[in-house]
Design a protein around this nucleic acid. Sequence first.
RNA 1: GGGCGGUUAGCUCAGCUGGUAGAGCAUCUCGUUUACACCGAGGAGGCCGCAGGUUCAAGUCCUGCACCGCCCACCA
Length: 761
Amino acid sequence: MDIPKNLDGQYDPADHEARMQQAWQDADCFNPDNQPNVDSDKEPFSMVLPPPNVTGTLHVGHAMMVTVQDILARYHRMCGQETLWLPGTDHAAIATQSKVERQLKEETGQSRFDLGREEFLKKVEGFAVESHATITAQLEKMGASVDWSREAFTLDEAREKAVRTAFRRMYEAGLIYRGDRVINWDPVGGTTVSDDEVDHVEETGSFWTFRYDADFPIAVSTTRPETKLGDTAIAVHPDDERYAEYVGQTLEANFLGVDLEIQVVADDEIDPDFGTGAVGVTPAHSMTDWDIAKRHDLPLKQVIGEDGRMTAAAGDFAGMTVNEARKAIVEKLDEAELIEETEEVTKNVGRAERTDAIIEHLPKKQWFVNVSKKFKVESSKIDGIEAGEEITLKELMQTAVASGQINITPDRFEKNYNHWIDNLRDWCISRQIWYGHRIPVWYHESKCVPIEGREEDVSKCEPFIVSDKSHDAEFPCPHCGAKYIQDSDTLDTWFSSGLWTFSTLGWPEETKDFKRFHPTNMLVTAYDIIFFWVARMILMTGFLLEDVPFTDVYFHGLVRDGEGVKMSKSLGNTMDPVDVINEHGADALRMALIDGTTPGQDSNISDEKIKKFSKFANKIWNATKFVMMNLPDSYTHEKPAEITGEHQAYLDQLAAKVDEVTANIDKFQFNLAAEKMYEYFWHVFADEIIEATKGQVYGEDLDEKEKASALFTLYEILTTSLTLLHPFMPHLTETLWQELPDTDGLLTITTWPNADKKTNA
RNA sequence: GGGCGGUUAGCUCAGCUGGUAGAGCAUCUCGUUUACACCGAGGAGGCCGCAGGUUCAAGUCCUGCACCGCCCACCA
């Protein structure tokens, strides 16, 4: 028999991958509404794509995430479950805005303030559109079986409504509040950032022990003398006899020309053995000092401004940058012989994740989510929480996981998660940037900001309105005609991504999709956003739906280069998935990402590894060619009356392999499933079984019964293998499936070999 | 200061609930067999970080230690 004409030569993915993607799109089978192989007895399977930031292009880390999810989606779809994998993108507020700001600066030298809010936002949106097009093209190229008809964007109209509704409901429950607190201020980005957006870098610096003035009885230590201009107290341990006589007193000091009133307080948190045992308390510029100040009702004195310069309260040092002031203060202290000791120490310096600016701690009025305030749960769907129970967001987040309702793979991350929640402070959700969901609060201009000369009767007017409705940035007050003006801040990007599993399904409307697909089944993501995102999703879903967002979380590791070095643009070792796909095919890339990697473990991707699987693809191509060359012209796959003992043993081995691979996928052991199929197809099927049957299917003096038995066995093993490999190598397997003589329709909606055995699929 | 991960063949890594060590690449020998040279047959190469313990049996479980890496935490 001749070589099948479409299988001539070697396998070249470039000839087939796009064709197969088109065939799937044409059949529209990734849209669960049109999925033809749904088994109505089975539960649906749903997942959201963690929305990539619209800040550029996808990298191999995304490819890993997409591969794992696509394996799951295709597997569950083949098992007959109505399967939804919902794609989308994230506006990534600060990340996107700062990227566009940098571009603007480089190209025109302008800042966002030169352009103005409206013009600048147009620029950002233009950039986002471009980036979005790149990302969707990349996802398609990887073979992601997502349902594009349901695509969402964290900043589109439907999501805006979800965000406003969420904000309002949390506000009404008393969980969102506006308050003064010390926040993390990014002086370069000109915005607050949350605790999680601060990276701590170890740097060396001096640690000075000094007195405010020569007559002051207590010495204090600091790495940041410039903040000491804002000291309003000294805290000591209650049992510390050295300072007992001063506790309760208010001492006067003149610190390099600035008058200080220092209250001496006793606080259990102070370590008497560290430094002098006395801490200069700076409530305005330290979060821990702020806490101390709250406990002792201490006043607050801000000496550093939002521009990173000393304020008027800093006396002679006003107007200096923080660094200049530090230097000047140390010099003057030195001259006045007030420094008792200078030590070199290593210290953690907080830097803004996006701009790398050194974070300043400043007191500022911001919006927060209170994670420690009890609220009443109306009708709980969370295991371990009863309807009517009073609970905090922290407790809710921990219960959802501790109860086992949310299962984390690998489970060691559960510890991380709990530990983070234990230490969680209120979540600062307002940002002073322009790109994002504007805070849905409107302030009454005459009530909140009294305007001179106006005498409207404002007794009926609300000072501000929190609304889930769509309003303009300004609208007239129905009572007095003055204006309501919207808060100029935007929300932390994770506020909207926290709603992602249900905002994408139409919430707050009770849509069919929402009822059918929520809670979702799986969340697949890298472990580095467990706090940013996973925890916030559990928080938001827990409060708003009194439910969990998903029942399984799978964390994959970070992807490094072949030498195990973290990929970065500056090192030039980044890998664009599209380049790899163009050269070796998406299937080879997918297998290379899965092979030899375990959940949560960082892995290396190398050219060598990718080649391994492009060779494997070629092997499958050729084995299929061999089987087809030996089939009769109009082969139909029917079991012959007699299967020889030898062949039956092969089929039994195959059945066992099906069970093993299925079990591996069910347990999220994708590496084992992939390695098993590699080993089986190449070294068992190709090397042994095909070789052993060669003399039985072609040549002289054939036993016709044995030949029929052999051909049936070969075809059975081949088609079953292609089916098992489909979630991993969808393009190649679909291509071959289309060439085989007795296959029906698309492989991607063909039933998984032992799908009927699976009870809870 | 807490927590987590890693330490297995020259390199990069698998090894699920404990039962006499595996893959790819590299290396050596042989083979132009009509699916595939992106191939086949065969070989060499491992006190499974160190030290104890549990067990009939440990790379796999327990304890301690060492080194590498990561995360969290502003000892002011």
